[in-house]
């Protein structure tokens, strides 16, 4: 009897052990998930209800459940119940903005970037270099399957921007502050992360311009240019004046660092550039100072991040190549 009991106990322990090990093995993708899960910032989770399709059971319970219960108990009249139900479905059913719409929004904002921030810096060799670094980093991002375009802005202010749909900008002033290719990869990685994580789109979806709508389609915007105008006005105010939520900037810093590391650069590139920006008087004239958290706060959030990247200090920063690619072109 005792031996039998012992067998069952051993079997139970085994099942627990097996279960645990299988779960951990099943989710171990050689660091792929581990690498990604760690930098994930909270906002992504908070925004899930707005961008992700609602889970059916939850919808059913909310639509029919509590409101229906309120109606049947006489706490809510039928009309209010219907209004509440439609409100719930409007909030929950907002369709994520599609790529075509994203590109239209991003293209309009890209035109504004050139219009507001010095226009294009015309140097083909330098543009090619920035495109090569940017494309390499985008290729190992979480969204490598869209086209990315990189341009240099003709302004001495150290600025960088990303607009939805794959448009990335760095200013000539910023390139002058950088000391090596790893720093450039980190800066471009930060901008690419805004696109891969659809930060601007998520901000638009939460904004006033789309209030009460369930989707944003190109057909609807073509029919109503006023709607498109409202969306662009709202998002340009955020990107160029007020700035995105701080948490989204911290998230872009983390993923920018991650992408540069994946490409094989020393993972401290972005961190080191933020330090330089913080120390430079030029930093004050940068769009970063008005639209981003302070360099101190950004460094605080990044502190410890590079510790996650084993052996990254041995990875190249490519100072020599950066100097030779930019010499006489800035």
């Amino acid at each position: 009897m005792r031996a039998k009991k012992l067998h069952w106990t051993t079997l139970a322990i085994f099942i627990l052990l097996l279960g645990g090990s299988r779960v951990s093995q099943a989710f171990d993708f050689g660091g792929l998930l581990e690498d990604l899960a760690k930098p994930k910032a909270e906002p992504e989770k908070q925004e899930a209800p707005a961008s992700a399709p609602p889970a059916e059971p939850a919808k059913k319970e909310q639509d029919g459940g509590l409101i229906g219960l309120g109606e049947s108990l006489g706490l809510i009249d039928k009309k209010s119940g219907d209004l509440l139900k439609s409100g719930v479905s409007t909030v929950k059913a907002f369709q994520p903005i599609g790529y075509e719409e994203e590109k239209a929004i991003g293209g309009s904002l890209a035109v504004q970037v050139f219009n507001r921030f010095g226009g294009p810096y015309k140097n083909e060799a330098l543009t090619r270099y920035v495109n090569l670094v940017g494309q390499a980093v985008a290729d190992v991002s979480d969204r490598p399957d869209i086209e990315y375009h990189f341009a240099i802005l003709n302004t001495e202010h150290p600025n960088a921007f990303a607009t939805p749909g794959g448009y990335v900008f760095v200013s000539v002033g910023l390139l002058k502050l950088l000391r090596n290719e790893a720093e450039l990869a980190g800066v471009l990685g930060h901008e690419i992360a805004h696109i891969t994580h659809k930060h601007a789109l998520k901000t638009i979806q939460r904004g006033q311009a789309l209030k009460g709508l369930t989707s944003l389609t190109l057909t609807a915007m073509n029919k109503d240019m006023g709607l498109f105008d409202k969306v662009i006005d709202e998002v340009s105010e955020i990107l160029f004046t007020r700035g995105l939520d701080k948490d989204l900037e911290y998230e872009a810093d983390k993923f920018g660092t991650e992408y540069a590391f994946r490409m094989g650069y020393n993972a401290d590139g972005l961190k080191n550039f933020i330090k330089v920006l913080g120390q430079s008087h030029k930093g004050e004239s940068s769009i970063f100072s008005s639209t981003h958290p302070s360099p101190g706060d950004r460094l605080g959030h990044l502190a410890g991040e590079s510790g996650r990247y084993k052996g990254h200090v041995l990875y190249p920063v490519l100072t020599k190549r950066y100097k030779s690619e930019t010499q006489g072109r800035l």
């Binding site: 293209g107 309009s108 050139f114 226009g119 105008d229």
Partner: peptide
């Protein structure tokens, strides 16, 4: 996108900025 170009023109943004994109 044509809608982006149309929007830029309606806002009086220069042709240079459109062409730069």
């Amino acid at each position: 996108s044509p809608i982006s170009e149309q929007h830029a023109k309606s806002k009086g943004i220069s042709k240079e900025s459109i062409n730069a994109v």
